[in-house]
C-alpha cells in the first residue's frame, strides 16, 4: 500500500532527477537544446571502432561517425557524450531515446532495419565474418573446420551466420556462446574452442589481445556480408539525413582530396563539387535545409578529417590493426564506398 505510494513518489523523483527531456519536435532540436550528441558505442571496447584510450577518450571509426555529426551540428567534434552499450542493449537504447544515434559496429540487416523501429543511415565499414584459429591446428581453410568447437558472442548476426555456414557446407560444429565478447575472447585464448568467429575487422583487433597473438591466424574465408553502419530512430527524416550526409561528406572530401590539413586552402578551390561541399560561394548552402549551417561539411572535415584519414588513423596503416582498405576503398579505387553528389 504505502509502499506503492512510495514507489510512485520514488519514480517521480527519479524522473525529475533524470534531467529528461520531454518528447519534442525532433532529435536535432533536442540535441541542439542539450548541447551535445548522445552516441551509443561499443561498451566492451572494440579497438579501432570504438574504445576508450588510457586517458578515457573514446577513439575509433564509429566514434568518428559520432564526432562528425557533432561537428556538423555544433561545429565542434568534441560535443559528444558516449554511452557504452552491449549487443543486447544497443537497439533498445536507441528506441527509448537514451541515445541520439548508434555507432556500435552494428550490421545492417533487413529485419533490424524494418522491425526494430530503427533505420541504418549508411555503411561506414564493409565487413564480413571470418574465423581465427590456433596455428597449431594446421588448418588453412574454414572448410576444414568440420567438427570444431567455435567460440562466439551471443545475439549477434555472427551467431546465426556461423550456423548457416556450417549447415550449408554440410559440416557439424559445436558453438560455445558467451554473453560478452571479453568472455568469448578469454575462452578462445584458454583453448576452449578451436576457432573464434566474428567480423573480420574484429578478429584482427581481438587477436592483438591474445596472450600470444602470433599463435593464431585469421582464415581467408569471409562467410557473410556485414555492412556495419550507424543507425537512428525511424521517423525522424531530418536527423537521419544529417547522420547519413555526415558520412557522405567525409567520403566526398576524400574523393576530391580535401583533408583536415588542407581544408582551409581548399575553400578557394575552383572545383564546383568542392565548393558545394564546403559551402563556398554565393547561394551555395546545403546545410540550412536540414537544420545545419552552410559550412557544416567544412566543420566535419576540419574537426574529424575525411573518411580516408579516419580509416587510416583508426584501423588502417596508422593503427595497430593495419587493415587494408579492401572493400572500404572509394569506388574510384575499386572499393564500395560511394557517396551521392552534393547538388
Amino acid at each position: 500500500m504505502r509502499s506503492n505510494t512510495f514507489k510512485t513518489l520514488l519514480l517521480g523523483a527519479v524522473f525529475l532527477g533524470a534531467g529528461a527531456v520531454a518528447a519534442s519536435a525532433g532529435t536535432l532540436d533536442d540535441v541542439k537544446a542539450k548541447g551535445f550528441v548522445q552516441c551509443g558505442v561499443n561498451g566492451a571496447g572494440l579497438a579501432g571502432f570504438g574504445a576508450p584510450d588510457d586517458a578515457g577518450n573514446w577513439k575509433g571509426l564509429d566514434v568518428d561517425a559520432c564526432r562528425a555529426v557533432a561537428a556538423a551540428v555544433f561545429g565542434d567534434p568534441s560535443k559528444v557524450k558516449y554511452t557504452g552499450l552491449s549487443a543486447k542493449e544497443r537497439f533498445t537504447a536507441l528506441q527509448s531515446k537514451e541515445i541520439d544515434m548508434l555507432a556500435r559496429n552494428s550490421t545492417n540487416t533487413m529485419s533490424r532495419d524494418t522491425q526494430l523501429g530503427i533505420t541504418f543511415t549508411g555503411v561506414n565499414y564493409y565487413d564480413g565474418q571470418g574465423f581465427m584459429v590456433k596455428k597449431a591446428l594446421g588448418v588453412s581453410s574454414a572448410k576444414d573446420l568440420n567438427g570444431a568447437s567455435v567460440c562466439v558472442q551471443s545475439g549477434t548476426t555472427t551467431e546465426l551466420n556461423l550456423a548457416d555456414y556450417f549447415k550449408s557446407n554440410g559440416m557439424t560444429f559445436n558453438a560455445v556462446v558467451f554473453e560478452k565478447q571479453e568472455e568469448a575472447d578469454a575462452a578462445y585464448d584458454a583453448g576452449r574452442c578451436d576457432a573464434y568467429t566474428t567480423d573480420a575487422s574484429g578478429l584482427y583487433s581481438i587477436r592483438l589481445k591474445m596472450t600470444n597473438p602470433d599463435d593464431s591466424i585469421v582464415l581467408p574465408e569471409i562467410i557473410s556480408k556485414e555492412p556495419l553502419g550507424p543507425a537512428v530512430r525511424q521517423g525522424d527524416d531530418q536527423w537521419e539525413s544529417i547522420v547519413r550526409w555526415s558520412h557522405y561528406a567525409m567520403l566526398i572530401a576524400e574523393e576530391f582530396g580535401v583533408t583536415q590539413a588542407n581544408v582551409d586552402e581548399m575553400k578557394s578551390s575552383e572545383n564546383p563539387e568542392v565548393q558545394r561541399l564546403l559551402g563556398v560561394g554565393e547561394g551555395v548552402d546545403f546545410g540550412t535545409p536540414i537544420g545545419l549551417t552552410k559550412d557544416w561539411a567544412y566543420n566535419i572535415i576540419k574537426g574529424v578529417g575525411n573518411y580516408g584519414e579516419s580509416f587510416e588513423r583508426n584501423v588502417g596503416e596508422g593503427s595497430p590493426l593495419k587493415i587494408a582498405r579492401g572493400l572500404n576503398a572509394l569506388w574510384t579505387k575499386g572499393g564500395l564506398q560511394y557517396a551521392p553528389p552534393i547538388r
Partner: peptide
C-alpha cells in the same frame, strides 16, 4: 537487471529516460 536495462526504458513515457547506472 536485464529488466532494468532493456525493459524499463520502454515503460517510461516517450522521450523520458535515465542513466544506465540509475
Amino acid at each position: 537487471l536485464f529488466m532494468a536495462s532493456v525493459m524499463l526504458p520502454l515503460f517510461l513515457p516517450n522521450g523520458v529516460n535515465f542513466d544506465k547506472l540509475l
